[in-house]
Amino acid sequence: MADHADVADGVIEHHLAQALRALPVGNPGQCALECEGCGDPIPEARRLALLDRGCTRCTECQELADKRGVRV
Rank of each mutant, 00 (worst) to 15 (best):
C58A: 08
V70M: 03
E44Y: 05
D66H: 14
T56L: 06
E63M: 05
E60T: 07
R68V: 03
C61F: 10
D40N: 08
C55R: 02
R57S: 11
E44I: 04
E63K: 03
G69H: 11
D52Q: 13
C58E: 02
E34H: 06
R46L: 13
I42L: 10
R68F: 08
R46C: 06
C55D: 13
V70L: 13
R71C: 00
C55E: 12
R57Q: 14
G69L: 10
C38K: 04
C61H: 05
R53T: 10
R47C: 15
K67Y: 14
T59Y: 00
E36M: 08
C35E: 15
C61P: 13
P41N: 04
R57V: 07
R46N: 11
E60F: 01
E36N: 07
C38V: 03
L48A: 10
T59H: 04
R47G: 09
L33S: 11
E60N: 11
L33V: 05
G54F: 00
A65Q: 01
L64E: 07
C38M: 11
R68G: 08
R57D: 15
C31I: 08
Q62A: 14
P43W: 01
C61Q: 10
E63R: 13
D40G: 12
A49N: 10
P43N: 09
E36Q: 10
G54K: 02
C55W: 00
C35V: 03
R47D: 15
D40C: 05
C31V: 06
R46V: 07
T56V: 12
T59F: 00
G54C: 09
E36G: 04
P43R: 04
R47W: 04
C38I: 04
E36T: 03
C38F: 08
P43K: 03
R71N: 09
Q30N: 10
L50N: 12
C31G: 14
D52M: 09
L50R: 10
E63C: 02
D66A: 09
D52A: 05
P41K: 04
C58G: 11
L51S: 08
A32R: 04
L51G: 13
R47K: 11
E34S: 05
L48F: 07
G39N: 12
P41A: 11
L50S: 12
L50F: 03
